[in-house]
Design a protein around this nucleic acid. Sequence first.
RNA 1: GGGUCGGUGCCCGAGUGGUUAAUGGGGGCGGACUGUAAAUCCGCUGGCUCUGCCUACGUUGGUUCAAAUCCAACCCGGCCCA
Length: 423
Amino acid sequence: MARGAWELPQALERGVADLFPAGQAEGAAADADQQLAARLAEAERDGRPLRVKLGIDPTGSDIHLGHSILFRKLRAFQDAGHTAVLIIGDFTARIGDPTGKSATRVQLSAEAVEANAATYLQQLGQGQDPQRALLDFSTPGRLEVRRNSEWLSGLDLPQVIELLGISTVGQMLAKEDFANRYGSGTPISLHEFLYPFLQGYDSVAIRSDLELGGTDQKFNVAMGRDLQRHFGQRPQFGMLLPILPGLDGVQKMSKSLANTVGLSEDPLSMYSKLEKVPDAVVEEYLTLLTDLELAQLPANPRERQKAMALAVTRQRHGAEAALQAQADAATLVGGASGSGAADAEVPEASLAAVNFPAKAFYLLSAVGICASSSEARRQIQGGGVKLDGEKLADPNHEFADAAALQGKVLQLGKKTFRRLVAG
RNA sequence: GGGUCGGUGCCCGAGUGGUUAAUGGGGGCGGACUGUAAAUCCGCUGGCUCUGCCUACGUUGGUUCAAAUCCAACCCGGCCCA
């Protein structure tokens, strides 16, 4: 999409994959129902900030960088003076968004949903300095946090039937996910059809002017427009951002694919994961996760990769911690093999749970560096384990007591380190 | 509701009575190499302080000296019919 295609401020336009409706800029009077630029101008003229909707279903406990691109965009709207309406999908989380799913999602209990919601808000920066936080929680009028159970749990059957009457089975089956599943004989539960209506109804309930979402949300966002029109409201705009590829560079970033970087990860692991994302996605990461001016970065791919990793880490942890993480990563990985590792900042692991005397393979699992003692045994035999830079070759090597290990750095592969501390 | 086919380890998928944690592929992890990577090559890939012992082929029972493999019931799913 060419820069300036929608005549939006750079901060709002950066990285946008799709914006609809997108009426022609030329021609008759700018139409505030068809062009976002016109709607923005109208908002400014009338002194009425836009209501920008972003819904999240609290189905997990961690927010990762893939989610953050939407929050970054939401923040950009906040910074431009608009109202972010963050919808916690406490009701819809219990149905599960079928988008992108090849199977029916497990339904969550109300308690689990509420607990997840709380950690989400915390990760988004509730109660934190707006400079460092992802969203601005403190400036008055810039944020509304709503739960969709507010309006959804009160719908009665006649109302639900009214909603369902707005669309057709044909339209539902035209949705890619449903079409794929139906076509391949994978089950689709009927209640999953309800999801788009409920998400759409959220837009009605909060009188959304614009909804943010990933490109896979087009169907649901468009449904919001249909419902708003049905209920006599001015339909929202849809602004879609790309789905961030995960660390594998191929599939979308998703916890279940274990290719994520969590927002609250420590600086070192955040940096070292990011500095080795595949070349193919570095530009996308730069565009979507940083504010760096792409043209001014060095051309060398390795340098761009590092600049990206540094910039993202800085946003979350500050400049100092980010630089430290960069230095540590260089020491640990690039490695004046081992000797430097002892000095670098490394997450600690307690020996409290270890029963001595401890055999090497048992130690690895007891300390949490390997998932099981069997795995630890294999890793040692495979030559992937070092203690203070020296290869541990014998899985049965016995350590008599904690004192022998205190302060040493246990390393698995190239990127997993734990400094052992007495419990 | 009726008919029919099917449910195997993270995923896909072999395997139809008997040396075996269970062929093969994918993914993942580790090693070498490199710009950290990618590509390539090699190793590992149920659990347990482990020269052995557990637990595993939808569930529960049964037949057998012996079952993922045979039988029964049940649960779940696809397709066809209603």
